[in-house]
């Protein structure tokens, strides 16, 4: 299959790296508005053809699949063009922040018989997949609550989100820079508690001097199968990307930065010893997670983007008719409805 990519930014390199090991997939074209970035990236990934006009690339290469990794405001137009050209399409998050546009994209993809997905890469990170298995097998019991938290110092000096000389494209989205992370928060919660019914959000600007419109958000979500607490902090340290799932039989904490899954469960034996046993299990998991992260870094394997590699592999299987879509239409629509509602209440408290 011929794969092409529109947008040669940082995330594009992860997409391209994920294609390298896929059998029957070749990188057939790289497109960017900047000739030097298109050429440099093309050279790095095997000297493939490069373009500065995506329509020219679609016409000349006739790709089987297109990855859209440009700023969010351009996703709809580029994805529509790629579908027009008969390609399967993988769009970076957020696919678009207009619900009508999502409907139009899927209408178009379905009429063409093409696979269209939004990048929900972290759902395929190994700890999240293990958590989903615990739910599926009933080991976790029923999910009562899920917490997804991101802490990244995006408000400080040197952050691409606060560069006063070149405003980041996400600053134009509802929610500002934090909008770049809301999709991750939303789909990780959706996987465990389903579509939301209502929510309350607190958007804050903790640092009055930051150029970000807001630098903290908390959201309490009432969803079909439980509740969710979503949070993003631009100030809490050290950096964190965690997922905690509370079940009726156990609770588990996963890290999306390291291969970490810590489980506390109901155990047999004297009840006073249960916290001790769980504490030891959690300590062991954290130790293994930290060392595992270091090992993975030294090994050159994908770090926190391990899920993207799996997602891309499944996307191409689905495109080849050998499997189901890795991110169903319903998931994308409901997750984006949650994202839209999260930003509706921006600055309301």
């Amino acid at each position: 299959m011929k794969a092409t990519i529109i947008g040669a930014g940082a995330i594009a390199r992860e997409h391209l790296a994920s294609l390298a090991d896929l059998p029957h997939v070749e990188i057939a074209g790289i497109c960017d508005l900047s000739p030097v970035m298109a050429e440099t990236t093309a050279r790095e990934f095997g000297g493939v053809p490069w373009f500065t006009d995506h329509r020219k690339m679609l016409d000349e290469v006739r790709p089987d699949a297109v990855h859209v990794t440009t700023p969010p405001q351009t996703h709809f137009r580029l994805a529509m063009d790629a579908l027009d050209a008969g390609a399967h399409v993988l769009v970076e998050k957020p696919i678009t922040h207009e619900h009508d546009e999502i409907a139009k994209l899927f209408e178009h993809a379905n009429s063409k018989g093409r696979v269209l997905i939004e990048d929900h890469n972290y759902m395929f990170n190994q700890p999240v997949q293990e958590l989903l298995r615990l739910v599926e097998t009933g080991e976790l019991g029923e999910v009562t609550h899920v917490e997804v938290a991101i802490a990244l110092g995006i408000a400080g000096d040197g952050s691409r989100y606060t560069d006063p000389n070149l405003p980041h494209p996400c600053l134009k989205l509802p929610g500002g820079a934090i909008a770049d992370f809301l999709t991750h928060l939303a789909y990780l919660a959706w996987l465990f508690v389903g579509p939301h019914r209502s929510l309350r959000t607190v958007w804050k600007k903790r640092d009055a001097t930051t150029t970000l419109p807001s630098d903290e958000v908390r959201a309490l979500v009432d969803a079909e199968r439980g509740t969710a607490l979503l949070s993003f902090s631009a100030h809490a340290q050290p950096d964190l990307f965690s997922l905690r799932v509370f079940g009726t039989k156990l609770r588990a904490q996963a890290s999306l930065f390291d291969p970490l899954l810590a489980i506390e469960r109901l155990r047999g034996g004297p009840r006073p010893l249960m916290p001790v046993a769980n504490g030891l299990a959690v300590a062991k998991a954290f130790g293994q997670g930290g060392l595992g992260g270091l090992w993975r870094k030294l090994s050159g394997r994908p770090m926190s983007y391990e899920g993207l590699f799996e997602l891309v592999a499944r996307f191409y299987s689905a495109a080849a008719g050998e499997g189901s879509t890795p991110v169903p239409q319903r998931q994308i629509e409901e997750v984006n409805r949650l994202v839209a509602d999260l930003t509706k209440e921006e600055f309301s408290f």
């Binding site: 930014g9 940082a10 390199r13 900047s34 000739p35 030097v36 970035m37 440099t40 040197g158 691409r160």
Partner: peptide, 17 residues
Amino acid sequence: MVGDDFTILSGTLTGTE
């Protein structure tokens, strides 16, 4: 001069271009 390898690369090259 600030940022990771890719930020340095892309910022320098697109600016020079």
